[in-house]
Nucleic acid binder design. Structure first.
Lengths: 201, 201
DNA sequence: CCAAGTTGTTTACACCGTAAATTTACACTG
DNA sequence: CAGTGTAAATTTACGGTGTAAACAACTTGG
């Protein structure tokens, strides 16, 4: 069978971006359904209706696709947290509680995406990298909590450290549940407990 | 090249167990060095000086080896926590603090083993399964903390839930650091903070 | 001594990520 | 308009994976 390229010669920057976006959309859905490890390059290409090697013209390799999807995941995540913050009326504690709920709900409802986001991605998240910036954006939503502590008289450094503790607890709760180490519902239970005595107004 | 089997006919139960142990020792070391995903069956077999298919006579498949190594990891982990408990003189808070330190140290010093232990292992940890029992043993060491709370007047159910919260925080802190999402040292910092206001005697 | 069964080996298959060669179709020259 | 260079997509090919199946070497029960 002869090759059947139907190109329009040297593709535009937006054509290029469009393909990348389309590929990421498809890959993201497949990853979410089966876990990133169980989706091959060939499967992604087939789902796009394109030959197995075509994606390599747009991404250096498989890892580059994972990196891109990770970034998109963090951005979606951050947007949800920000929305939860904006949609909640009340004091900082109420907003923080809503964000905590959103955090756990997102992780449990998008297990494979969350696993991909927080899996071992070799290179560290320098604030310069796109991934680092996406992570920073998600992390920044946590500052609502620290801000409340500062208003209550806590030193800034300490308040920021407390944010790290809250984050650790949320992350630990959902990953333990996602791994099957703790039974279903544990994460929400932990969240409830955390809110009870870490968010007393 | 002709096959060169030098067997001694129908191997004893302890011969069988010995091979499994030897294989797990080797596999564990290779996993620790390179990460489980980067170690193939063929590599393990080669390291054992045996042909690629021989391990399959002792383990159903690769996943069965991972499961076994996971169990051994949890047992080693539990033993360390128990040792930290036994070696610490003082009240429950001091013992709990020592165990928390041991927890974080183990995870950071055995990153790949820890990742394997708490990675997605498909089947849940029923208390009937060997893995479930190994997990339960590690988890049981946490009860020291809950016991202290109960002595301080907290209801039992609540105290056990608090153990889950502590576990989540420790697990979250180390996995965030192992993933590179938080900078080195963060887990110890979180541990310090946790101990400060969760362990006030 | 022979048939059966246990052990380890070799071989084989379908899949993977991706490097390299190949084909196609456009955008240019003349 | 013919010819050519080249970007885009394809096919092919290579070394790797997990593991099923066939096979060879041996021990043992009859």
């Amino acid at each position: 069978m002869p090759p059947t390229p139907r190109t329009s010669r040297t593709l535009t920057d937006e054509d290029l971006a469009a393909f990348k976006t389309r590929l990421c959309d498809v890959a993201e859905a497949m990853f979410a359904a089966a876990g990133a490890d169980n989706v091959s390059m060939r499967q992604i290409a087939a789902a796009l209706g394109v030959s197995p090697m075509t994606p390599y013209r747009y991404f250096a390799n498989r890892e580059a696709i994972l990196a891109e999807v990770r970034i998109r995941g963090f951005e979606r995540f951050a947007a949800l947290l920000e929305a939860a913050y904006a949609a909640t009326s009340g004091d900082a504690a109420a907003k923080a509680a809503a964000m905590g709920r959103e955090y756990v709900d997102f992780a449990l409802a998008n297990a494979n995406t969350y696993r991909l986001m927080f899996g071992e991605h070799s290179q560290e998240d320098s604030d310069e990298s796109p991934l680092g910036r996406a992570v920073a954006r998600a992390r920044a939503t946590l500052s609502v909590y620290g801000d409340g502590l500062i208003r209550a008289g806590m030193a800034e450094a300490e308040a920021r450290a407390m944010e790290g503790l809250i984050w650790s607890t949320l992350h630990g709760a959902v990953t333990l549940e996602l791994a099957g180490t703790t039974p279903p519902g544990s994460a929400h239970e932990t969240l409830r407990l955390l809110g009870r005595f870490a968010l007393r107004g």
